[in-house]
Amino acid sequence: MLQKYTYPIIIALSIAASACQSKKPEKQPEAANAQTTPTEASGPQFLNKPLITEIYTADPSAHVFNNKIYIYPSHDIESNIPQNDNGDHFAMRDYHILSQDSVGGKVTDHGVALDIKDIPWAGRQLWAPDAAFKDGTYFLYFPVKDKNDVFRIGVATSKSPTGPFKADPKPIEGSFSIDPAVFKDSDGQHYMYFGGIWGGQLQKWENGKFNPAGSKTDSGKENDPAISPKVVKLSADMHQFAEPVKDVQIIDKAGKPLLTKDHDRRFFEASWMHKYNGKYYFSYSTGDTHYIAYATGDNPYGPFTYQGVILNPVLGWTNHQSIVPFSDKWYLFYHDTELSKGQTHLRNIKVTELKHNPDGTIETITAYKE
Protein backbone atom coordinates (compact mmCIF):
# COMPACT_ATOMS: atom_id res chain seq x y z
CA MET A 1 0.00 0.00 0.00
CA LEU A 2 3.01 2.31 0.24
CA GLN A 3 2.68 4.91 -2.43
CA LYS A 4 5.05 6.79 -4.70
CA TYR A 5 6.56 8.72 -1.79
CA THR A 6 7.98 5.57 -0.22
CA TYR A 7 11.28 5.78 -2.07
CA PRO A 8 12.68 8.71 -0.05
CA ILE A 9 12.02 6.66 3.11
CA ILE A 10 14.01 3.69 1.82
CA ILE A 11 16.91 5.94 0.89
CA ALA A 12 16.63 7.69 4.25
CA LEU A 13 17.00 4.40 6.10
CA SER A 14 20.25 3.59 4.37
CA ILE A 15 21.55 7.10 4.99
CA ALA A 16 20.57 6.93 8.65
CA ALA A 17 22.35 3.64 9.24
CA SER A 18 25.71 5.18 8.35
CA ALA A 19 24.99 8.65 9.70
CA CYS A 20 24.51 7.31 13.23
CA GLN A 21 28.25 6.56 13.32
CA SER A 22 29.15 10.27 13.37
CA LYS A 23 31.85 11.21 15.90
CA LYS A 24 30.45 14.65 16.70
CA PRO A 25 28.79 14.93 20.14
CA GLU A 26 25.82 16.89 18.84
CA LYS A 27 25.30 17.67 15.21
CA GLN A 28 23.60 20.97 14.42
CA PRO A 29 21.13 21.32 11.56
CA GLU A 30 22.62 22.26 8.22
CA ALA A 31 21.03 24.73 5.85
CA ALA A 32 18.70 22.82 3.56
CA ASN A 33 16.88 23.80 0.40
CA ALA A 34 13.27 23.69 1.56
CA GLN A 35 12.04 23.37 -2.01
CA THR A 36 13.62 20.06 -3.02
CA THR A 37 14.09 16.66 -1.44
CA PRO A 38 17.56 15.85 -0.11
CA THR A 39 17.63 12.61 -2.07
CA GLU A 40 16.95 13.81 -5.58
CA ALA A 41 17.37 17.34 -6.94
CA SER A 42 14.62 16.82 -9.51
CA GLY A 43 12.33 14.98 -7.09
CA PRO A 44 9.14 16.21 -5.41
CA GLN A 45 9.16 19.47 -3.47
CA PHE A 46 8.39 19.67 0.24
CA LEU A 47 4.95 21.06 1.04
CA ASN A 48 6.14 22.89 4.17
CA LYS A 49 9.34 24.31 5.65
CA PRO A 50 10.80 23.38 9.05
CA LEU A 51 9.50 25.63 11.83
CA ILE A 52 12.94 25.93 13.41
CA THR A 53 16.40 25.19 12.03
CA GLU A 54 18.76 25.98 14.92
CA ILE A 55 18.16 22.63 16.62
CA TYR A 56 16.60 19.33 15.60
CA THR A 57 13.03 18.84 16.82
CA ALA A 58 10.44 16.08 16.54
CA ASP A 59 7.12 14.80 17.91
CA PRO A 60 5.40 18.20 18.07
CA SER A 61 2.59 18.41 20.62
CA ALA A 62 0.91 21.72 19.88
CA HIS A 63 -1.53 23.56 22.15
CA VAL A 64 -3.19 26.95 22.19
CA PHE A 65 -2.84 28.73 25.52
CA ASN A 66 -3.92 32.39 25.90
CA ASN A 67 -4.51 32.70 22.13
CA LYS A 68 -0.92 31.70 21.38
CA ILE A 69 0.52 28.49 19.93
CA TYR A 70 2.92 26.54 22.15
CA ILE A 71 4.75 23.49 20.81
CA TYR A 72 6.20 20.81 23.07
CA PRO A 73 8.58 18.73 20.90
CA SER A 74 11.36 16.25 21.43
CA HIS A 75 14.88 17.66 21.04
CA ASP A 76 16.92 15.39 18.77
CA ILE A 77 20.68 15.19 19.16
CA GLU A 78 23.49 13.22 17.53
CA SER A 79 23.77 10.20 19.80
CA ASN A 80 26.55 8.28 18.02
CA ILE A 81 24.52 5.11 18.56
CA PRO A 82 23.80 2.77 15.62
CA GLN A 83 20.17 2.59 14.55
CA ASN A 84 18.19 -0.35 15.94
CA ASP A 85 14.58 -1.46 16.51
CA ASN A 86 14.79 -0.52 20.19
CA GLY A 87 15.34 3.13 19.23
CA ASP A 88 18.53 3.52 21.25
CA HIS A 89 19.77 6.11 18.74
CA PHE A 90 16.97 8.46 19.89
CA ALA A 91 18.90 9.54 23.00
CA MET A 92 17.35 12.93 23.76
CA ARG A 93 18.33 14.64 27.03
CA ASP A 94 16.13 17.74 27.38
CA TYR A 95 13.08 19.61 26.11
CA HIS A 96 12.88 23.00 24.41
CA ILE A 97 9.48 24.68 24.20
CA LEU A 98 8.57 26.74 21.14
CA SER A 99 5.89 29.36 20.60
CA GLN A 100 4.40 31.50 17.85
CA ASP A 101 1.67 34.09 17.71
CA SER A 102 0.30 32.77 14.43
CA VAL A 103 0.81 29.91 12.01
CA GLY A 104 3.48 31.10 9.62
CA GLY A 105 4.73 33.67 12.12
CA LYS A 106 8.04 33.87 13.96
CA VAL A 107 8.89 30.85 16.10
CA THR A 108 10.55 31.53 19.46
CA ASP A 109 12.73 28.90 21.16
CA HIS A 110 12.36 29.44 24.92
CA GLY A 111 15.39 27.30 25.74
CA VAL A 112 15.66 24.26 27.99
CA ALA A 113 12.44 23.74 29.95
CA LEU A 114 13.38 20.41 31.54
CA ASP A 115 16.68 18.50 31.60
CA ILE A 116 17.04 14.79 32.29
CA LYS A 117 19.55 15.50 35.06
CA ASP A 118 16.77 17.26 36.99
CA ILE A 119 14.45 14.23 36.97
CA PRO A 120 15.39 12.20 40.08
CA TRP A 121 14.22 8.82 38.82
CA ALA A 122 15.30 9.13 35.17
CA GLY A 123 17.83 6.96 33.42
CA ARG A 124 17.94 7.81 29.71
CA GLN A 125 15.94 8.77 26.61
CA LEU A 126 13.49 11.65 27.01
CA TRP A 127 11.02 10.84 24.25
CA ALA A 128 7.88 12.57 22.95
CA PRO A 129 6.15 14.78 25.58
CA ASP A 130 2.81 16.53 25.86
CA ALA A 131 1.37 19.35 27.94
CA ALA A 132 -1.85 20.46 29.62
CA PHE A 133 -3.18 23.39 31.65
CA LYS A 134 -5.45 23.43 34.68
CA ASP A 135 -6.15 25.88 37.50
CA GLY A 136 -3.20 28.16 36.81
CA THR A 137 -0.63 25.39 36.40
CA TYR A 138 0.97 23.97 33.26
CA PHE A 139 1.75 20.27 33.22
CA LEU A 140 4.47 18.65 31.11
CA TYR A 141 4.06 14.89 30.67
CA PHE A 142 7.09 12.96 29.48
CA PRO A 143 8.27 9.39 28.94
CA VAL A 144 11.77 8.45 30.04
CA LYS A 145 13.45 5.18 30.91
CA ASP A 146 13.97 4.71 34.62
CA LYS A 147 17.21 3.43 36.12
CA ASN A 148 16.12 -0.13 35.26
CA ASP A 149 15.74 0.86 31.58
CA VAL A 150 11.94 0.62 31.68
CA PHE A 151 9.90 3.44 30.17
CA ARG A 152 7.65 5.26 32.64
CA ILE A 153 5.68 8.49 32.32
CA GLY A 154 6.47 11.46 34.52
CA VAL A 155 4.91 14.84 35.12
CA ALA A 156 6.50 18.23 35.73
CA THR A 157 4.83 21.55 36.55
CA SER A 158 5.31 25.25 35.96
CA LYS A 159 3.36 28.49 36.27
CA SER A 160 4.49 29.39 32.75
CA PRO A 161 3.69 27.50 29.52
CA THR A 162 7.38 27.77 28.60
CA GLY A 163 8.77 26.54 31.91
CA PRO A 164 11.12 25.90 33.50
CA PHE A 165 9.31 22.78 34.72
CA LYS A 166 9.95 20.95 38.00
CA ALA A 167 9.55 17.19 37.81
CA ASP A 168 7.72 15.16 40.44
CA PRO A 169 10.12 12.95 42.44
CA LYS A 170 8.57 9.74 41.08
CA PRO A 171 6.86 8.64 37.85
CA ILE A 172 3.08 8.37 37.68
CA GLU A 173 2.12 5.20 39.53
CA GLY A 174 0.99 2.53 37.09
CA SER A 175 2.45 4.30 34.05
CA PHE A 176 4.48 2.58 31.36
CA SER A 177 5.53 2.82 27.71
CA ILE A 178 5.73 6.11 25.75
CA ASP A 179 4.02 8.98 23.93
CA PRO A 180 1.63 10.48 26.49
CA ALA A 181 -1.05 12.67 24.90
CA VAL A 182 -3.44 14.53 27.19
CA PHE A 183 -6.92 15.43 25.96
CA LYS A 184 -9.32 17.81 27.74
CA ASP A 185 -12.91 16.90 26.98
CA SER A 186 -15.79 19.37 26.78
CA ASP A 187 -16.75 18.66 30.40
CA GLY A 188 -13.26 19.58 31.63
CA GLN A 189 -12.12 16.02 32.33
CA HIS A 190 -8.58 15.17 31.21
CA TYR A 191 -7.61 11.82 29.69
CA MET A 192 -4.17 10.48 28.83
CA TYR A 193 -3.58 8.30 25.78
CA PHE A 194 -0.23 6.55 25.54
CA GLY A 195 1.77 3.59 24.27
CA GLY A 196 4.18 2.52 21.57
CA ILE A 197 5.35 -0.88 20.38
CA TRP A 198 8.88 -2.04 19.54
CA GLY A 199 11.21 0.47 21.28
CA GLY A 200 8.21 1.82 23.18
CA GLN A 201 8.03 -1.51 25.06
CA LEU A 202 4.23 -1.87 24.93
CA GLN A 203 4.54 -5.47 23.72
CA LYS A 204 6.49 -6.27 26.89
CA TRP A 205 3.52 -5.36 29.11
CA GLU A 206 1.13 -8.21 28.40
CA ASN A 207 -0.88 -9.23 31.50
CA GLY A 208 -0.07 -5.93 33.16
CA LYS A 209 3.49 -6.80 34.16
CA PHE A 210 6.77 -5.90 32.50
CA ASN A 211 8.56 -8.86 30.95
CA PRO A 212 12.14 -7.87 30.03
CA ALA A 213 12.49 -11.09 28.04
CA GLY A 214 9.36 -10.35 26.05
CA SER A 215 9.22 -9.71 22.33
CA LYS A 216 11.24 -6.82 20.92
CA THR A 217 8.53 -6.29 18.31
CA ASP A 218 4.89 -7.23 17.73
CA SER A 219 5.82 -10.12 15.40
CA GLY A 220 4.85 -13.74 15.96
CA LYS A 221 1.14 -13.03 16.44
CA GLU A 222 0.22 -11.90 12.97
CA ASN A 223 -3.37 -13.15 13.07
CA ASP A 224 -4.13 -11.90 16.58
CA PRO A 225 -5.72 -8.52 17.33
CA ALA A 226 -3.06 -5.82 17.25
CA ILE A 227 -1.59 -4.50 20.50
CA SER A 228 -3.80 -1.70 21.78
CA PRO A 229 -2.83 1.83 22.78
CA LYS A 230 -3.95 2.83 26.26
CA VAL A 231 -6.26 5.43 27.79
CA VAL A 232 -6.78 6.52 31.39
CA LYS A 233 -8.64 9.31 33.17
CA LEU A 234 -6.33 11.68 35.06
CA SER A 235 -6.85 12.58 38.70
CA ALA A 236 -8.21 15.99 39.68
CA ASP A 237 -4.72 17.23 40.58
CA MET A 238 -3.35 15.97 37.20
CA HIS A 239 -0.46 14.12 38.88
CA GLN A 240 -1.87 10.57 38.91
CA PHE A 241 -4.16 8.13 37.14
CA ALA A 242 -7.71 8.18 38.50
CA GLU A 243 -8.59 4.66 37.38
CA PRO A 244 -7.08 1.45 35.96
CA VAL A 245 -5.55 1.82 32.50
CA LYS A 246 -7.84 0.68 29.67
CA ASP A 247 -7.22 -0.60 26.14
CA VAL A 248 -8.14 1.62 23.20
CA GLN A 249 -9.79 -0.70 20.71
CA ILE A 250 -9.43 0.18 17.03
CA ILE A 251 -11.85 -1.69 14.78
CA ASP A 252 -12.63 -1.85 11.08
CA LYS A 253 -15.96 -0.79 9.62
CA ALA A 254 -17.28 -4.33 10.07
CA GLY A 255 -16.66 -4.03 13.80
CA LYS A 256 -13.69 -6.40 13.89
CA PRO A 257 -10.42 -5.47 15.64
CA LEU A 258 -7.45 -4.60 13.44
CA LEU A 259 -4.93 -7.44 13.34
CA THR A 260 -1.21 -7.47 14.05
CA LYS A 261 -0.45 -8.24 10.41
CA ASP A 262 -2.37 -5.17 9.23
CA HIS A 263 0.68 -2.88 9.32
CA ASP A 264 -0.98 -0.26 7.12
CA ARG A 265 -3.72 0.38 9.71
CA ARG A 266 -2.78 -0.99 13.12
CA PHE A 267 -1.46 1.20 15.94
CA PHE A 268 2.30 1.62 16.40
CA GLU A 269 2.79 4.85 18.44
CA ALA A 270 2.00 8.60 18.59
CA SER A 271 -1.49 8.75 20.09
CA TRP A 272 -3.43 11.98 19.73
CA MET A 273 -7.06 12.90 20.38
CA HIS A 274 -9.12 15.78 19.07
CA LYS A 275 -12.85 16.42 19.01
CA TYR A 276 -14.78 17.78 16.05
CA ASN A 277 -18.55 18.24 15.79
CA GLY A 278 -19.10 15.98 18.79
CA LYS A 279 -16.98 13.12 17.40
CA TYR A 280 -13.76 11.85 18.96
CA TYR A 281 -10.85 11.48 16.55
CA PHE A 282 -8.06 9.16 17.67
CA SER A 283 -4.98 9.55 15.44
CA TYR A 284 -1.72 7.65 15.51
CA SER A 285 1.32 6.49 13.57
CA THR A 286 1.46 3.08 11.89
CA GLY A 287 5.24 3.06 12.41
CA ASP A 288 6.94 0.74 9.95
CA THR A 289 4.50 1.68 7.16
CA HIS A 290 4.87 5.38 7.99
CA TYR A 291 1.26 6.58 7.86
CA ILE A 292 -0.53 8.94 10.22
CA ALA A 293 -3.94 7.26 10.44
CA TYR A 294 -7.14 8.01 12.32
CA ALA A 295 -10.24 6.36 13.74
CA THR A 296 -13.43 7.89 15.16
CA GLY A 297 -15.68 7.12 18.10
CA ASP A 298 -18.51 8.42 20.24
CA ASN A 299 -16.71 8.70 23.58
CA PRO A 300 -13.14 9.13 24.89
CA TYR A 301 -12.69 5.40 25.53
CA GLY A 302 -13.77 4.15 22.13
CA PRO A 303 -14.04 1.79 20.40
CA PHE A 304 -12.73 3.78 17.45
CA THR A 305 -13.54 2.84 13.88
CA TYR A 306 -10.67 3.15 11.40
CA GLN A 307 -11.39 5.84 8.80
CA GLY A 308 -8.24 6.37 6.77
CA VAL A 309 -4.95 8.22 6.41
CA ILE A 310 -4.34 11.78 7.55
CA LEU A 311 -0.74 12.05 6.32
CA ASN A 312 1.10 9.94 3.77
CA PRO A 313 4.73 8.88 4.42
CA VAL A 314 7.30 11.63 4.86
CA LEU A 315 11.07 11.65 4.46
CA GLY A 316 12.43 9.65 7.39
CA TRP A 317 11.31 6.57 9.31
CA THR A 318 9.18 8.01 12.10
CA ASN A 319 6.33 10.49 12.21
CA HIS A 320 4.35 11.93 15.10
CA GLN A 321 1.43 14.36 14.94
CA SER A 322 -0.76 16.77 16.83
CA ILE A 323 -3.97 18.37 15.59
CA VAL A 324 -5.23 21.69 16.94
CA PRO A 325 -7.70 24.45 16.00
CA PHE A 326 -6.46 28.02 15.73
CA SER A 327 -8.09 31.13 14.22
CA ASP A 328 -11.03 29.21 12.70
CA LYS A 329 -8.80 26.63 11.01
CA TRP A 330 -7.38 23.25 11.98
CA TYR A 331 -3.68 22.45 11.74
CA LEU A 332 -1.57 19.31 11.62
CA PHE A 333 1.86 19.48 13.24
CA TYR A 334 4.27 16.71 12.18
CA HIS A 335 7.94 16.06 11.50
CA ASP A 336 10.27 14.81 8.79
CA THR A 337 14.05 14.74 8.21
CA GLU A 338 14.52 17.46 5.61
CA LEU A 339 17.24 19.34 7.52
CA SER A 340 19.39 16.27 8.18
CA LYS A 341 18.86 14.98 4.64
CA GLY A 342 17.19 11.79 5.78
CA GLN A 343 18.93 10.88 9.05
CA THR A 344 16.02 9.31 10.84
CA HIS A 345 17.06 10.33 14.38
CA LEU A 346 17.64 14.01 13.45
CA ARG A 347 14.24 15.44 12.63
CA ASN A 348 12.49 18.79 12.20
CA ILE A 349 8.91 19.81 12.92
CA LYS A 350 6.48 21.29 10.40
CA VAL A 351 2.86 22.43 10.22
CA THR A 352 0.18 22.35 7.54
CA GLU A 353 -3.55 23.04 7.37
CA LEU A 354 -5.87 20.10 8.06
CA LYS A 355 -9.38 19.97 6.59
CA HIS A 356 -12.44 18.04 7.74
CA ASN A 357 -14.83 17.08 4.96
CA PRO A 358 -18.59 17.74 5.29
CA ASP A 359 -19.13 14.08 6.24
CA GLY A 360 -16.58 14.34 9.05
CA THR A 361 -13.74 12.52 7.32
CA ILE A 362 -10.32 14.16 7.03
CA GLU A 363 -8.66 15.06 3.74
CA THR A 364 -5.49 13.02 3.25
CA ILE A 365 -2.36 15.18 3.15
CA THR A 366 0.77 14.48 1.15
CA ALA A 367 3.85 16.28 2.48
CA TYR A 368 5.19 16.98 -1.00
CA LYS A 369 4.00 19.35 -3.67
CA GLU A 370 2.62 17.81 -6.84
Results as ranks from 00 to 15, higher is better:
S14W: 13
I15E: 12
C20K: 12
K23N: 14
K24V: 15
K24Q: 05
K27V: 15
Q28L: 15
Q28F: 15
P29N: 06
E30G: 14
E30N: 13
N33S: 09
T37S: 10
E40D: 06
L47V: 02
P50Y: 10
A58L: 08
P60I: 12
A62E: 07
V64W: 02
V64K: 00
K68H: 13
I71Y: 04
P73L: 07
S74R: 02
H75M: 03
N80S: 15
Q83S: 14
D85H: 10
N86Y: 12
H89G: 14
A91N: 14
D94Q: 13
Q100A: 10
D101R: 13
G104W: 01
K106T: 15
V107E: 01
G111F: 02
L114A: 08
I116D: 01
K117I: 10
D118H: 04
L126K: 01
D130V: 02
A132W: 03
K134S: 12
K134W: 04
G136S: 09
L140H: 07
P143Q: 04
P143M: 00
V144E: 03
D146E: 07
F151T: 04
T157C: 13
T157R: 12
S158Q: 09
A181Y: 11
K184G: 05
D187F: 07
M192D: 01
Y193K: 00
G196P: 08
W198N: 14
G199T: 11
Q201S: 06
E206Q: 15
F210L: 01
G214I: 03
P225S: 08
S228E: 13
V231G: 09
K233W: 00
S235M: 05
S235C: 11
S235A: 11
D237W: 02
M238A: 02
F241Q: 07
A254L: 12
G255Q: 03
L258R: 08
K261C: 14
D264R: 11
F267P: 09
E269M: 02
S271I: 04
M273G: 05
K275Y: 03
Y276C: 00
N277W: 01
G278Q: 03
F282L: 03
S283N: 06
G287K: 02
I292S: 11
A293V: 13
Y294D: 02
N299K: 01
Y301S: 07
P303D: 10
Y306C: 11
V309C: 10
I310G: 04
I310T: 08
P313I: 11
W317N: 14
T318N: 04
Q321R: 00
V324I: 12
L332V: 09
F333P: 04
Y334D: 03
T337H: 08
E338T: 04
L339D: 00
S340R: 05
K341G: 06
I349F: 06
T352L: 00
T352N: 00
K355S: 01
T364D: 03
T366D: 09
Y368R: 07
E370Y: 08
